[in-house]
Nucleic acid binder design. Structure first.
Lengths: 237, 237
DNA sequence: TTCTATCATAGAACATCGTTCGATAATCGG
DNA sequence: CCGATTATCGAACGATGTTCTATGATAGAA
């Protein structure tokens, strides 16, 4: 084994690039890994390899992997935030609340790995807090007590999170490798349900077809509609 | 280093105990570890030490750590299921739905580690599916389409999950060690929020006091009430 | 009783991961 | 030109999930 070979510059040192890797580059690489293969693919070594640096370098920009994940999440939440801020306000706060929630959900559809870690850190300076604020501002236009407002936003966020964690689960290897598509996977699952005794499982038996062809987005929208209906009722009273 | 010392019987081989460690014993040990210090404490080596065996033995009962976790979850969900099955049905399906959801949530309050992994596997033969069925049976008493029933149950489960994942997060070390209690931790968090500009963060500023003294259970109940109200509206129409 | 196939156990060994650490450039103010 | 700061790299460490082989226990067959 050769000793530690000192510093073969990974990049041509030409030009004046002060820092060959900024924090943004590290975050972008992390997000790319997450997008490609989920949370399990985000590895310090894999990230270093993608950036063409060593593992130690990453720790100069970030103090731990947890912080790396937090910052990566905040990074992508920034896009959702600007998108939400661009949406014009209508006369109905609850309609606006729905639009925002849908935007959030869509962001998670695009990046399923977000599902499990969404709203992990409501840090000041973070985009989570701004998102939270944006949602809350709509409740300020409703005739509610502060506590009701607080609970209303929590409920809406809860609906988003509750429906997103399902998607956050890493799909089984056979569908990830493309051997089996999602439709067939769901179909197999449904078949095991169909084999159940309809007397012991009357509900599952009745909705198995709905499950077999179910759309996550539609499912989320239905759940959102229920809490928004409840909220409208509460605000009207 | 001494060589592999063969087989010091971990248990007195008296009596007729066929297997000194049953699957139930392994699961009980896993649950105990989870209850004591969360998911990060569930380690094959820690579990082996607690059971007084070797790591390899555990793999005789379980094929992977994922399966171990799945089975441990299903193990504790069994208690929740029997508790739910013991609840007498009332005349109002939605009231029963609420009772069941609360029971589920309470189970997660007792075992915060459940939060993140709740409803991970709706395997046949598993208690998740039976729980799902039990919830669904209440919707069968409502005037809804199959799709609406399917969505209703998903919504209720979503509320439970959405409010449970927050609790599933492992608390920071300082509160886990008892140096700082939860109240003070929340208080510090709230203080950083209070320092925000009220013009830029009108909502957060208004609800910061609600947040500082908020109760997870109450928050969950409020969210649940909203979707149940929406559901009642839908069933009535 | 003895033999043998199966049940069950134990822990070393391996690959991978997050993290730490010291060595070493590159850069810049003085 | 020099010290301090900034930035980089990869070896090494400890912990973890998993595999593997060796071995003891057990029960039925001979």
């Amino acid at each position: 084994m050769t000793g530690p070979r000192p510093h073969p510059p990974a990049r041509p040192p030409r030009g004046r690039q002060r820092a060959s890797h900024s924090l943004d580059a590290v975050l972008a690489g992390a997000v790319a890994l997450l997008d490609e293969a989920g949370v399990s693919a985000l590895t310090l070594r894999a990230l270093a390899a993608r950036l063409g640096t060593g593992v130690g370098s990453i720790y100069w920009y970030v103090s731990s992997k947890d912080e790396l994940l937090d910052r990566a999440i905040d990074h992508v939440l920034g896009s959702a935030l600007t998108e939400i801020e661009a949406q014009p306000a209508t006369a109905d706060p609850i309609d606006d609340l729905r639009t925002m929630a849908v935007t959030l959900f869509d962001a998670i559809v695009d990046r399923p790995w977000l599902g499990g870690y969404f709203m992990r850190n409501t840090d000041v300076k973070g985009n989570s807090l701004r998102l939270y604020e944006k949602l809350g501002q709509q409740t300020l236009r409703l005739g509610l007590t502060p506590r009701q407002r607080f609970h209303a936003v929590s409920a809406v966020v809860g609906v988003v999170v509750g429906n997103a964690v399902d998607m956050g689960q890493e799909p089984p290897p056979e569908v990830l490798d493309g051997i089996v598509d999602r439709e067939e996977f769901l179909g197999r699952y449904a078949d095991t349900w169909r084999a159940l005794d309809a007397r012991e499982f009357p509900f599952v038996s009745e909705i198995v077809d709905e499950f077999a062809g179910h759309d996550d987005k539609e499912q989320f929208l239905a759940a959102l509609e229920l809490t928004l209906a409840g909220l409208r009722l509460q605000a009207g009273a």
